[in-house]
Design a protein around this nucleic acid. Sequence first.
DNA 1: TACACTCAGATATGCCAGTG
DNA 2: CACTGGCATATCTGAGTGTA
Length: 460
Amino acid sequence: MQTLSRVTPGTVISAIQIAQAIRENVLVRWKQNVPEDFKDAKTLFLADRGGMIYEPKIGLHENVVEIDFTSLYPAIMVRHNISPETVLCKCCADSKHRAPIIDYHICERRIGLIPRVLEPLINRRREYKKRVKDKDKEYNDHREIYEARKKALKWILVTCFGYMGYRNARFGRIECHEVINTYGRELLLNTARIAEDLGYEVLHGIVDSLWVKSSSNSNNHEKLCEKIFEQSGISVELEGIYKWIVFLPKRSDPTGALNRYYGLFENGEMKIRGLELRRSDTPPLIRDAQMDMLKVMARANDAAELQGRIPEVIEVVRGYADMIAKGECDLKDLVFTSVVSKDSEYYHQLNNNLACMLQLKNEGLKVRPGEQVKYIITDAESKRYNRKVKAWQLVKGNVRLLYDKKKYLAYLVRAAGNILAPFGYTERKLTEIIKPGRQLTLINSIQERSYQLSPFLRPE
DNA sequence: TACACTCAGATATGCCAGTG
DNA sequence: CACTGGCATATCTGAGTGTA
């Protein structure tokens, strides 16, 4: 673990480090946007409005279980009666109901508006969730509707927490936001502790989800969930058991990225977060390439098998690279889609979006903020708006358009490198491998590399 | 010696989309 | 809603080089 003395502005400090800082009353510097006078760790804790994050343990893991709190923040608001008029209320300053660490008192005389509003929503969502999972024929015709309603309620519940911390919100109050966060952190920390006591290893945690690794003496997951519910009063569910899961590093430094991972559940479903293929601005070609890579990986039943399949995954990348290099790509698969946030005259820099907007403007087509632009990259290096990209709307039927092969190859290598980073394949290596005429050396290089595990895979 | 220029790497900013 | 991450671009900095 990083020592506190080395923490610099911009570093994300884990909650464990904060807890340690509080215990030891260490002075730490936090992110740049925190004022100078927030130097004391305890003050810092109060100042921090963010949720809790464990730093993910990068790389490939087996026997991983994911558990999620159901609607964590709203559940906290309901359970602890958190509302603008109940937190630090005037009527019961001596209340025994106090938030951890920050010690704000919470009203004991009346139930707040927010809990009253949220409770029925939580119950309703729970019921929909039950009906979606229920095998009962009675629900068969409505399962899709229940799923949609469940999703809608989820986002209402998620954003209600955000609104608490929003200064313009009618029912917002920053102290509520703080209280919710302190409860949230306590919960996740306690949950992690419970898991560890039962023999699990905590791999990653974010806000309301925890990924833990089971071992031969810790495989009673139901017991884990029960125990957590017993101690916290908030229900947790088993999101799933993974055959394997890969947590990816950030691109900026080799620490774990909280929102980038992919894994295969025991039921054969994949869970993918943060990869290019999840992004709406990724062209279909790159999305397909990543999807095809993952499909090959999904045939692996355990970590060792996955390792063995990496050469096959590389072949997929090569296939796509050849297609790009030979100019055989279907143009519609190369289209980037992006939402612009302002009118063209307000941009300072010529980026792809602006180049596309200007082309359309020439044709009398105005793109307004909030609308999409679609384009193919024709010459990424160019500083001229009509060379840089080609607006998709202006591509005529049979016209032969020369796309920027180099750029699309770079995107492909990047997308592949993201997935394969923990297996020792950097973008540079991939670039070498996909060069035409490397068929034979590819095999050699893979054999050679299979013994050179990436640092993330080496035993401690 | 003073100054201008180039280049590469580090750092900051703008923008967008993802996580919950 | 709050917050993080990634990419492209702009700006800064220091080393190296050329020229008057």
